[in-house]
Design a protein around this nucleic acid. Structure first.
Length: 320
DNA sequence: CGCGTTTGACCCGCGC
DNA sequence: GCGCGGGTCAAACGCG
């Protein structure tokens, strides 16, 4: 009962129009989980940021003391709370590297005969395509934290909620979303930080196999904040969510790098992955695992990674 | 009627 | 082997 109320409240937030729920400040971070085998070889910007491997638990991440007392990208004066939390990469000591989140990335796989039998045995049990595949590969994952009142951030795609679970050690539930586009198996998890309820942790998993339904492929890229605010999310019907704009012009560091590199933040099939900013929010991307050592593969498909991560940050790791 | 959400049940992996 | 926690399914329900 109480739980129900809680969830209702949660939903009400998510369903609110982003216009009145629009967060004034966004602080972001990202987690990448590439289905690579190499555990230690490659280095991403995770190293650039002095970040260690992340575990699968986002809460571990949130609860981990920051490596950097204060990120130069996040003026604490503006976002005192989030700056601490959001810039909270796992410390070398935070051995929350479970990396064992056995995601059913390939749950679309065909079932084996054995599994069919199992299904039959389980009579009323819903047939689950999940199999005991020891090498279950995970889709690339990207997570970031957002300081927002709204749970479900509108990234331009349409999502359908398919589940919600209570998260241990957290009063807030975790919501599971799936891209509504057929044949697109991208999933998204949204949960609110128990430490700081104002922080929403969104985890994307997989790669969209289609252009953004809201922002056509060609028009995506660097979205002007104002435009993104008014158009990207709002127009999208992404489902009562807040749009978010990746800040660019306000981040001196990023801007500087960008100007130097003259490379856009986003790549082709970028959804309108934009993050709102009030001149005080900065995306901080973290890598959960590591990048695939193959440069070509990186360029080809990074999933959401290539959508969001600045190119210079995605520079292929020097062979180790 | 179509689409999205809610929610309880189920499945699976992991740790003990 | 068992329990726990995370992830998913699908029927029921709500809404436009």
């Amino acid at each position: 009962m109480e739980k129900k109320e809680e969830l209702k409240t949660d939903n009400s937030m998510a369903n609110s129009t982003f216009s009145d729920q629009i967060p004034t400040t966004f602080a972001l971070s990202g987690i990448f989980d590439m289905p690579c085998e190499s555990e230690k070889g490659s280095l991403g910007f995770m190293d650039m940021l002095g970040i260690q491997d992340y575990g699968s638990s986002l809460f571990d991440l949130l609860q981990t003391p920051p490596v950097q007392p204060q990120s130069p990208l996040l003026p604490a004066s503006t976002i005192p709370e989030s700056s601490e939390v959001v810039n909270t990469p796992a410390t070398p000591n935070s051995s929350s590297i479970s990396s064992s989140s056995t995601e059913a990335a390939n749950d679309e796989q065909t079932k084996t005969v054995e599994e069919e039998e199992q299904d039959q045995e389980k009579t009323k049990k819903q047939m689950k395509p999940k199999k005991k595949n020891p090498k279950r590969q995970r889709e690339p994952r990207f997570a970031f934290m957002t300081k927002s009142e709204v749970d479900h951030l509108d990234d331009g795609y349409r999502w359908r909620k398919y589940g919600q679970k209570a998260v241990k050690n957290s009063p807030f539930p975790r919501s599971y979303y799936r891209c509504t586009t057929a044949a697109c198996g991208v999933k998204k998890r949204v949960e609110r930080s128990s430490e700081d309820p104002s922080i929403v942790v969104t985890t994307y998993e997989g790669t969209h196999t289609h252009p953004c339904p809201i922002t056509p492929r060609g028009s995506i890229g660097i979205v002007p904040e104002s435009a993104a605010f008014g158009g990207g999310g709002g127009g999208g019907g992404g489902g009562g969510a807040s749009s978010f704009i990746i800040p660019q012009s306000h981040s001196s560091h990023y801007q500087h790098q960008q100007q130097q590199q003259q490379q856009p933040y986003f790549y082709n099939h970028t959804p309108s992955m934009t993050f709102s900013t009030n001149s005080s929010s900065f995306p901080i991307f973290l890598q959960e695992r590591q990048f695939c050592p193959s440069p070509s593969s990186m360029l080809r498909d990074h999933g959401l990674l290539q959508d969001i991560v600045p190119s210079q940050m995605r520079k292929e790791p020097k062979e180790e």
